[in-house]
Design a protein around this nucleic acid. Structure first.
Lengths: 195, 195
DNA sequence: TGCCGATTTTAACTTAAGTTAAAGAGTTTT
DNA sequence: AAAACTCTTTAACTTAAGTTAAAATCGGCA
């Protein structure tokens, strides 16, 4: 399948964008490749693009000002959106880094074009709402994980629901995403394997 | 100010709904009072209404199937929306209870009416998006609280950002909202007061 | 006033995660 | 094959939260 068709299919499935509505956007998608370690969006810069990951893996992370540790907030795997969502929505500087963890390939659309689409087309405005709702649901699931689950349960859940990420990513990256220290997660794994 | 005007003002400020767009909705807002302890939305029922709290305080909570403990997920204070958001968006049964913590007074609009408004009016579709984005931001802030902050810091943050709720609500309700056990939160407070 | 129910604090103990540093594996490089 | 690097596990110790139950406090109400 051609790259642009993969975006179209994705938008159709998750956002209800039909062929006609997609055509409005088609000229505005631009392709970009990222080397491992390159930034999709830099610290303190406004995220101007909504991306679709054709290939590769991104993360958003925060650098603890005290310890200097990096803490991962999101992973963006293949066939998904990549964006600094909050920054993108409000067009304010992002407090985080969004970085390619592998060589990557992305199709991106500029916020201005997207805003035009929102105005032009009811279907795109609908898309904007659906995307926000999906993002909300996933953020809320995560919050509930912290409220109701032990670190051990959160880890198990992650392995179950996002196995691709767990396989691709070093443990210490997972551990910060789950809000668990490296040695603790290591102990948790040991505990699990002994059952 | 008349009740309906308070809704109109709220929608204007947070959702960009102007007077003309609001008029489309005006006939569909219905008033309802709740006694303390009454449910805005029951466990396993689909949330059909988006509400605006004129007066009172609601919470959404979950009952732990093992311990039987109640754990609070949201508080909805006066001059805010009240809704079982996820259930409302997807029109699926809610896994939680949403309950009035005090006698309360609410204006509500039915999902079908809101869906009509989305279809009729670009501005309402826009509103739907903005509401979802706000919900996303607050869910994400909460997730980041769990990722980056200690229980003590989360409690301090809550006191700072939502003092009204902290004052109105017994400590054991706060504690479950913050993902902290009662005695732990009590110790945290003591620690703080001794500094 | 004194009792009752609701809420908060304390106490005593258990458990698990945080912290720091070192050791062990596993890869890649030269 | 040894060195260099990256990542994971271990160890030893500290700290704080979880747990359970009892005591103290607070408020309304008989």
């Amino acid at each position: 399948m051609k790259d642009i068709e993969r975006v179209s299919t994705f938008l159709h499935h998750v956002g209800g964008i039909d062929e006609k509505a997609f055509k409005l956007s088609a000229p505005h998608w631009q392709s970009k490749t990222f080397k491992k370690g390159e930034f999709y969006n830099e610290y303190h810069s406004v995220c101007k693009y909504l991306g679709f990951v054709l290939d590769g893996l991104f993360r958003t992370y925060y650098v603890d000002s005290v310890s200097g540790d990096e803490k991962n907030i999101f992973f963006f795997p293949k066939d998904n959106v990549v964006v600094a969502f909050k920054s993108f929505l409000s067009q304010t500087p992002c407090n985080y880094y969004t970085q390619a963890m592998t060589d990557a390939n992305v199709l991106m659309i500029h916020i201005d074009e997207l805003t035009n689409l929102y105005k032009q087309s009811h279907q795109w405005e609908h898309f904007g709402r659906v995307i926000a709702e999906i993002a909300y649901n996933s953020a809320m699931d995560r919050t509930e994980g912290f409220l109701f689950k032990t670190p051990e349960e959160r880890y198990k859940e992650m392995v179950k629901t996002q196995p691709e990420i767990c396989e691709q990513v070093p443990l210490y990256h997972l551990s910060s995403y789950l809000g668990i220290q490296g040695p603790s997660l290591s102990r948790i794994r040991k505990r699990i394997s002994q059952k």
